[in-house]
Amino acid sequence: MSIKEKIVEWLRELIDKNRQVEVLSFYDEVPIRVKVKPLSIENKFVQWEIDPKLRLAVEDTGKIFTQFFDPEYKQKRSLEGNVIYFNNKFLETDMLNISTDPRLSRKILRVKISDSCPVEVFIVNNGRKEKVKAWDISEDGIGLILPKNCVDYNEKINLELIFPFGRIKTQGIVVSKQPFQDGEKVGLFFPNLSPKEKDLIYRYIMKRQKEILKTIRLLTE
């Protein structure tokens, strides 16, 4: 039996038994988990119950994620589906497929940087500072929006980060690049932060997480 056939069989069993499954999506990079039921499968599309928190997250992310137990491999496998349509009553995705989304393997919380709680980031090169747009941040690294092909994998970049309550001068190593609008979203790893610097980032993440969760409550209650 192919993996697609296994997924369809699993979904049909959930539908027949009227069972919920935990579904994950992201809002401002914070994972949102809810339990919903798959309602139907038709023409390679899956219709799901919708939850107010899930609706908010898929509007931001455009995907849902879940897991199913593969009896052949005797392990859970991560799945994802692209959201095709949603309203107040249900959402529809394409057929679930195996997911390799790196967000699913994160061990450290990452948050999207907001205008209301900004982080100013400068690339420092030969004494010159160039301000760049920061996208998200964790204690391990930061995502920046840069022009295409302006940095290479494993390149070391000197950075200055200015938070609402302090600043950090550090180095980032380019570990990922992906297309983003007219440029690239570049992921940098912080190899040598001090405990004090990590604590500063942690304080920012906690502040943003509270802000995000408050927004979710206001928009869904």
Rank of each mutant, 00 (worst) to 15 (best):
I84F: 05
N82K: 15
T100R: 08
I98L: 12
V119A: 13
Q75R: 14
R103G: 06
I84H: 05
K74R: 15
Q75D: 07
Y85T: 00
Y73N: 10
K74C: 04
S78V: 12
N87P: 01
E120T: 12
P118R: 08
E92M: 08
L96I: 02
V111P: 09
R106Q: 03
S99L: 14
F86D: 00
T93L: 07
F122L: 15
L96E: 03
F86W: 03
K76R: 15
S105L: 00
R77D: 05
T100G: 06
I84A: 05
V111G: 10
F122D: 14
R77Q: 10
K74D: 06
D94G: 15
M95R: 05
K74F: 11
R77P: 01
E72T: 09
R77M: 10
R77W: 03
E92D: 02
V111D: 14
N82T: 12
N97Q: 09
L91M: 01
P71K: 14
V83Y: 10
N82M: 03
S105I: 00
S105N: 03
P118I: 12
V83A: 09
D115P: 02
I84R: 10
G81D: 04
D115I: 06
K76E: 12
S114A: 13
Y85A: 01
I113F: 12
F90K: 01
V119Y: 11
D94Y: 12
N97F: 04
K74E: 13
D94I: 07
R110C: 09
D101R: 03
D70F: 08
E80A: 06
I98M: 08
K107L: 09
V119G: 11
P71S: 13
Y85W: 02
S114Q: 14
D115C: 04
G81R: 03
I98C: 07
K89E: 12
S116T: 14
N97C: 07
D115G: 07
N87W: 01
I84W: 03
V111Y: 13
E80Q: 15
L79C: 06
R77Y: 06
K107D: 12
I84Y: 10
K112V: 14
N88T: 00
R103H: 10
Q75N: 06
G81L: 02
I84D: 03
E120R: 15
V121C: 14
R106M: 07
K76C: 06
G81F: 03
T100I: 04
P71A: 14
S78L: 10
K107N: 12
I98N: 05
L96D: 02
D115H: 01
N82G: 05
L79M: 02
